[in-house]
Every structure is written in C-alpha cells, then in structure tokens.
C-alpha cells in the first residue's frame, strides 16, 4: 500500500515539451510511472519520445486516455491557470512542481480546487514517490527503496538527504511526499499524516518542517489527538534571522511567530520524536520500528 499514488496512477504531464517537463517525463517513464499523456497547447497530435500522445488541452487528454493524475511543469505566470485547467478537466490529484507562483494567484486557485474536490500538492514542491511503484515529480528514484516509513516534508533536497540516509541504513519508505515551501499550498502536513495513519503499510512517519507559519504546530496537535502511529519531526531554520525569507517563500519568521523553537516545543508536547540533526532520523525511526 501507499498514499496518493500507486501502480494505477495514470499521469498526464502539463508542459511535457518544456526543458524541465521533458527531462522529468523521461525520468518518470524510466521509473515505471504510467505516463499516459502530455499537454502542450499547439502540439496536439504529436508524440513525446515516439510513444506518449500530446494533447492541446487537459480535457482532451483525459477524454482520450483516462488520466487521473496531473503533474505541472509550466512557468510561474501560467501555473495557476494550469492547476485550474486540470481540476476542471476532472483530474483527482494535481501536483504542481513550478516554483515562483504568486501567492495571490494561489488565494484564487485554492478555493477553486477545494470546491472541485480535487487534491492539489504544491506548488513549489518536488512531488511524491511510492518506491517501486510510481513517481510523480522530481524526487530522484534511486535514493528511495520500499519499506515501512512515510515521509512528508516542506523541502526538496533536505528530503533527499533524509531519505538517502534512511535507505543507506536499510530503512525503506511507503511514500515520500514533498508538500512544498510556499505559504499557501494545496496539501498540508495534516492531510499527509491522516493518509499515513490510514495506510496499513506505514508504521512510522518522518516529518520535516521549516520555520514560518503554524502548520507544524497544528500537525503536532493532530499527532497528539488523532494518531496512533509514531511520528519523528525535524525543523529547518533554527539559526534563521527573523523577518528574512530563507529561500522558500513560506520560510520566514514574522515578528516572533513561526520560530523553530515554538515548533519543536509543539513536537515535544505531542510526544513526537525530535531529530536535532537529519542523521538522527535513522536511530529514532529504527527504535520506533522495534
């Protein structure tokens, strides 16, 4: 089992002929993801790599191929529209990799996808991977291996670091989800924790948060009251100065709120394991796997 994606995921790639889209389309196909369609307006009727049909619109792609999941690699000014296009075409799961989407665009997109009952992951995220079954996004496949740990994170390369250390220690993953570093994203920690709690194969969850906002504090509260499975947490940005955006648009301490200290306190209060360093995940998770 896994969460959000598996062998039945039928993927359409929006922006399949672009620089990033085409590179990662090949990577996903090599990994074994069922890539059933691509969308690039004006290139409908052509084929990507001689095999994947390209359509002008997501609606056409869904009608012809039955795609149920979409991944978006279009440039930031068009990303919000691409998300709404996928949702309106009946796609159930939309993953937006694009970084730099204006936050005011997201204030309009978020209620739209919610009303359509669509799950959006991202924007500004690395996507997700169910090792051995399917990968949607840009997480390198070879650092993952199947196993009992659910991984959820606001970051990209930090996730790779932790997953790589787990895999090197012989600890595999059910699904790794990068929810993205923007202030408004479609899927939050709680959505992922709830899915992992329901997933019979997931035994322990590794959660990597950052400074900024209150998502981690709310997640800790959820762990405390709604979960039976153990969760190990980490917060990046303990040395970050207040008021500065640390790369990710959402990673900013506003006034005195959103600090690493207050998030770690919430983890502690929820009885979660706390990784002080990325490498601490290995031992803390090993202990909890028994």
């Amino acid at each position: 089992m896994s969460v959000f994606i598996d062998k039945n995921t039928k993927l359409v790639i929006q922006g399949i002929t672009g620089r990033d889209g085409s590179f990662h389309a090949k990577q996903m196909m090599e990994y074994g993801t069922q890539v059933v369609a691509g969308v690039t307006p004006g290139k409908g009727g052509q084929k990507f790599e001689g095999t994947v049909p390209i359509f002008n619109t997501v609606m056409d792609a869904v009608a012809a191929t039955g795609a149920n999941t979409s991944v978006i690699y279009v440039p930031p000014p068009f990303a919000a529209d691409a998300i709404m296009e996928a949702a309106a075409a009946g796609i159930a799961l939309v993953i937006c990799i694009t970084e730099g989407v204006p936050v005011l665009d997201m204030t309009k997109v978020y209620p739209f996808v919610k009303e359509q009952g669509v799950r959006l992951i991202g924007p500004n995220c690395p996507g997700l991977i169910t090792p051995g079954a399917s990968k949607v996004g840009i997480i390198p496949g070879r650092i993952c291996t199947p196993g009992p740990v659910g991984v959820v994170s606001r970051s990209g390369t930090l996730t790779y670091e932790v997953v790589y250390q787990l895999t090197s220690a012989g600890i595999g993953q059910t699904t790794c989800v990068g929810i993205g570093g923007d202030p408004i994203n479609g899927t939050n920690f709680i959505d992922c924790l709830a899915a992992f709690e329901q997933d019979p194969k997931t035994m322990v969850i590794a959660m990597m948060g950052e400074i900024g906002g209150t998502d981690e504090q709310e997640a800790a509260d959820f762990v405390k009251h709604q979960m039976k499975k153990p969760v190990v947490g980490f917060i990046a940005g303990q040395t970050a100065p207040p008021g500065r955006r640390m790369g990710h648009a959402g990673a900013i301490i506003s006034g005195s709120s959103g600090t690493a200290a207050e998030k770690l306190e919430a983890f502690e209060a929820a009885g979660m394991g706390i990784a002080r360093r990325p490498k601490d995940f290995v031992e803390l998770i090993r202990e909890r796997l028994g």
């Binding site: 994170s153 606001r154 390369t157 670091e161 990597m208 990046a236 640390m246 790369g247 002080r276």
Partner: peptide, 28 residues
C-alpha cells in the same frame, strides 16, 4: 538566494531546506 549573517563558516548549498539544515548543523 543569499542572506548575510554574522558567523564565519561560509555555506554553499543547493535547496533552501538543506541550506537551512546545513546552517543549523554548523551551529549544532
């Protein structure tokens, strides 16, 4: 993306999350 701080260990990292985690580890 660069933000100047007061310490003496210069850091060059790829990715914002890993960059923050690297700074934290320097402090650790």
């Amino acid at each position: 993306t660069f933000i100047k701080l007061d310490g003496d260990v210069g850091c060059v990292v790829n990715g914002a999350g890993l960059a923050m985690a690297t700074m934290d580890l320097v402090k650790y």
